[in-house]
Nucleic acid binder design. Structure first.
Length: 469
RNA sequence: UCCCCGAUAGCUCAAUUGGUAGAGCGAGCGGCUGUUAACCGCUAGGUUGUAGGUUCGAGUCCUACUCGGGGAGCCA
């Protein structure tokens, strides 16, 4: 784009341009420092890279006194000038301004919510519309994008098809927690049946409908036709969870592979995590250096180590054994047949192995009906990928492809078999062994950036009592 | 939802056993300087989260609520 006869470039491109180039930059002021030698330094960012660029504004600019000396953090400007090698330390190049046009001033600098000082993440969450202007949240936005693209690229390179599974579901049987209702009925005065219950036959879909808690059941149908598929979409859980790693609305990646068993599934999970971490370290080196320096020292080493070394695989039964034999005092006793507590998972990843661990073959009693029953008839072919600091980042399994075994599991758990008619059809017509997993995208971003709270790695977090913006 | 902790200036925090609110940063003005977490001076800025209660007197004690943090459960 041309502006005043000078080419407008992104700041990340400006850093790569040759000194002597005449360019135009547009962005938002981060800081302004004046020198009585008759010039001001303006740090300008436009979101295209971690570092702001330094603008040098001499006092011979016509609007120096009237406007430039009044620029504050947050003001938007356009700058034409010549890229020159910097005389000062701290940056290689800077833009010597020949013209600065003020696009938007900050109305009241005294109350601008993200002034040039350190702010707590809790506070910035309250100004989520302005926090992307800070270096941390700009970096998070770029990392989110990079990870999203890496996920798609990973699957595309392996001939997986991206399947758009529905957001609204009328299955009341997905069994992954509380669901949000979707309805057009009058909530204050819904139609009633003769028995006095809400008559959902009169609702939009003719039956109860909810927001999806997982795309898995739907994506299995495409897996059993296209062989390798995945979904990557919004997912909703109405659980009253108040933790640093749960959201009511989050994005989940769910691949599903046909003619595959749990070992194939675990390999896919490992390959995928390594691919996206490596891609992130390569493509967003600037932001990762920032997270490593300011958010979580050692982050880059941790991710590099994960990329370079094989994941540990450990059956649940052996994990229980390790926990029982450890001298560590746990608040909850470890017993075969019960789910591991957070403290147990943390011990394994953070103290015992100090690396990600894939736990496999859990007792059937604590896992979902669709997970394939192992030959011991006590465990199922399930896996959890546990990482230090966060815990479960991936949950997956080989699916039960044998109709008689699936039916037995549905009965055992007291689930309504009729509701699963189309899911059961997959086992009646050309069934195949298949497997898949769910990766919580925000947990991936959390782990990749070292951010402590999941509400800070999604632009506008939804959680209990939190739906502002 | 449960347990623990917290809420004081735009932001981050102080304020002895209950006795009428202070600093730093940010902001405005001035000084100094090719500056970059700049530095120095001055100024403005607060019904102490909300609603009750105890007391001569409450930022401080009590109760409820709201919101936030840490941990737990549910999970991704």
């Amino acid at each position: 784009m041309k502006e005043s006869g000078v080419e407008w470039v992104q700041i990340k491109e400006a850093f790569k341009a040759k000194p002597g180039s005449r360019i135009s930059l547009k962005g938002w002021v981060r800081t302004r420092r004046d020198s009585k030698a008759g010039l001001s330094f303006i740090n300008l960012h436009d979101g295209t890279c971690q570092d702001p660029i330094q603008i040098v504004a001499l006092n011979d600019l016509p609007n120096y006194e009237s406007e430039i000396l009044h620029l504050n953090t947050g003001c938007s400007i356009e700058v034409d000038g010549e890229l020159v090698e910097s005389q000062g330390k701290g940056q290689s190049v800077e833009l010597r301004a020949s013209e600065i046009r003020v696009v938007g001033m900050v109305e009241d600098p005294d109350t601008y919510p993200v002034s040039a000082k350190r702010h707590s993440f809790e506070y910035l969450r309250e100004v989520a519309h302005l926090r992307p202007r800070t270096n941390t949240f700009g970096a998070i936005a770029r990392v989110r994008h990079a990870l999203s693209m890496a996920v798609h690229r990973f699957f595309d390179e392996r001939e997986f098809y991206y399947v758009h599974t529905p957001i609204i579901t009328a299955n009341d049987c997905e069994g992954a927690g509380q669901m949000f209702r979707v309805s057009t009925l009058d909530a204050l005065n819904p139609p009633r049946t003769e028995a006095g219950e809400v008559d959902f036959e009169q609702d939009f879909f003719g039956k109860e409908a909810h927001l999806t808690v997982s795309g898995q059941l739907n994506v299995e149908t495409y897996c059993c036709a296209l062989s390798r598929v995945y979904t990557f979409g919004p997912t909703f859980r109405a659980e009253n969870s108040n933790t640093s790693r749960h959201l009511a609305e989050f994005w989940m990646i769910e691949p599903e592979i046909a003619f595959a068993d749990l070992a194939d599934d675990a390999r896919l999970a490992e390959d995928m995590l390594k691919y996206v971490f490596k891609d992130l370290l390569d493509r967003r080196a600037d932001d990762m250096a920032f997270f490593d320096k300011r958010i979580k020292p050692g982050l880059i080493d941790t991710l590099t180590h994960i990329v370079e070394s094989p994941f540990l695989r450990l059956p649940y039964t052996e994990a229980v054994d390790i926990l029982q034999k450890s001298s560590k005092k746990f608040e909850y006793k470890v017993e075969w047949g019960t789910d591991l507590q957070s403290e147990h998972e943390r011990f394994l990843t953070e103290e015992h192995f100090k690396q990600p661990v894939i736990l496999t073959d859990y007792p059937k009693g604590i896992k979902a009906f669709y997970m394939r029953l192992n030959d011991d008839e006590k465990t199922v072919a399930a896996m959890d990928v546990l990482v230090p600091g966060i815990g479960e980042i991936i949950g997956g399994s080989q699916r039960e492809e044998r109709l008689d075994v699936l039916d037995q599991r549905i009965d055992e758990m007291g689930l309504p078999k009729d509701e699963y008619w189309w899911y059961r059809d997959l086992r009646r017509y050309g069934t195949v062994p298949h497997a898949g997993f769910g990766l919580g995208f925000e947990r991936l971003v959390q782990f990749s950036t070292g951010m402590a709270n999941i509400r800070d790695v999604i632009p506008f977090p939804r959680a209990p009592k939190q739906a502002e913006f």
